[in-house]
Design a binder for these strands. Structure first.
Lengths: 249, 249
DNA sequence: GACGATTGTCGTACAGTGTGCGAGTGACCT
DNA sequence: AGGTCACTCGCACACTGTACGACAATCGTC
């Protein structure tokens, strides 16, 4: 049996391109993202995408090996949308990248779906990593710890945002408002809270509607991010720079 | 237009069940997990699942509303596989739950895929949350901070493990060994590292094969987890309990 | 026991999917 | 002028989730 090779958009050299004419890979990826944003993950089909571009479905296969490659490209584009801050303060850099990534993910909820199925090896993903690592390196981390710390921040950011994006996206794709969902969830939540009194706030938005759920989640995200940064800072040789002075009480 | 309602396996009361006969929901979920484990996400089809159970494909629809519900159930089963520790020490509890969840996810790589598309509202997911929150509450967190801290740990754990599981799963489903993948990735990695010298360790497994990649990732996971726990501990009123004394240097 | 209601199974069918293949088209280079 | 590429696309195949309605089996009630 001939052993398979590992392939990804990022592991093959690109084909030579003729002068601009008709479809281009960039154009296709852009259309893919538009379609995904507008109609969600399961509405994306090659035929629909082709139609949107005024082309046949199979024409796309000249520019892209398969649908998965297309998704890899789209995912990396989201990583590319993260604005990279320019600052000397490592906490500021790391924090801004994390927030930027969060915003990008929330704007493209299908992102977490793709991330769950395909590895993220694109240049923009690597760049996000690299920016974090550079800042952490300047902060004083050394050796493997640089990568570990960078991965930790990235992991937290993605892990915190993914379920949130999945949820809002699930609502949107079924055409349900958040109020309606909260109303539908209310009995189940009530029962869950009765069984586990410890988690009263996690779903409190569903019962207590005076709290803005979006603000609530931002607070939650910030709490974890600050904790992570504090934990990292404590690892630095002399951590004389800046206490944890953030918007959480 | 009649507004849609939000539905999930967990938001509808279960049907009355007659005495055990033929298919059962538990049996179906078990078979689903077996099939997913063995052949991966995209190999799961209702027809194949029916065949595996010696039943027609559409018979399944009596016990389950649709494929998504089935995935929700399977996902919650994974949450249920996390062994809940019994300890007074909050760090031990939290740390063990995090590691347990990590192990469960790695054993069922399709998990992160489902998590990316469907919200996790099942009892076992809630229970994981609740156990964490209970420990954190005993540790001294109060009010919303309890939930925030619990969510932070869960988020980090999932975010750190998801891409890893996705990657190994992608390899497995294409029948590629890790050595082969590393070989295929090597040129791309080399180029990436040249462009971003900051991230030399993230892919070092691909070049320097003397490091066991699995151990490497465990170290990385532990690093972030300890940082998160340290950051949380620092938030406690009097953090006189136990320094960060773990396997990282 | 009889009989209607409920629970459960399944064959068929429909609309739609990703993508392999091979024929076609036009632009470029020699 | 002729050949070689970069592309586009129609067709076809195997396969998907699931709505529907016809069946069988078992139950509660008389």
């Amino acid at each position: 049996m001939p052993e398979q090779r590992f392939t990804s958009v990022w592991t093959r050299e690109s084909k030579p391109r003729r002068a601009q004419q008709g479809l281009s890979r960039e154009q296709i990826v852009r259309a893919t993202i538009e379609l995904l944003d507008a109609e969600g993950m399961e509405a994306l089909s090659m035929r629909k995408l082709g139609a949107k571009l005024g082309a046949g479905a199979t024409s796309l296969y000249w520019h892209v090996a398969n649908k998965n490659e297309l998704l890899e490209l789209a995912m990396d584009e989201v990583f590319g949308a993260v604005r990279i801050p320019d600052s000397e303060n490592w906490r500021e850099v790391v924090s801004n990248v994390a927030w930027g990534l969060r915003v990008a993910i929330m704007a493209h909820p299908w992102f977490t779906f793709v991330l769950g199925s395909l590895p993220a090896l694109g240049p923009n993903a690597l760049n996000c990593s690299a920016v974090l690592c550079a800042a952490l390196s300047r902060a004083g981390f050394q050796g493997h710890d640089v990568d570990y710390a960078g991965a930790a921040v990235l992991s937290y950011t993605i892990g915190a945002t993914a379920p949130e994006a999945a949820y809002t996206s699930a609502l949107k794709s079924r055409g349900i408002t958040m109020e309606q969902a909260n109303r539908d969830l209310a009995p189940a939540v009530e029962q869950a809270v009765r069984a586990h009194p410890e988690i009263h706030a996690r779903f409190q938005q569903a019962v207590d509607s005076t709290i803005d759920p979006i603000a609530h989640r931002q607070l939650s995200f910030d709490f974890g991010l600050v904790a992570m940064l504090d934990g990292l800072a404590a690892r630095l040789p002399r951590s004389a720079d800046m206490p944890a002075n953030h918007l959480t009480n």
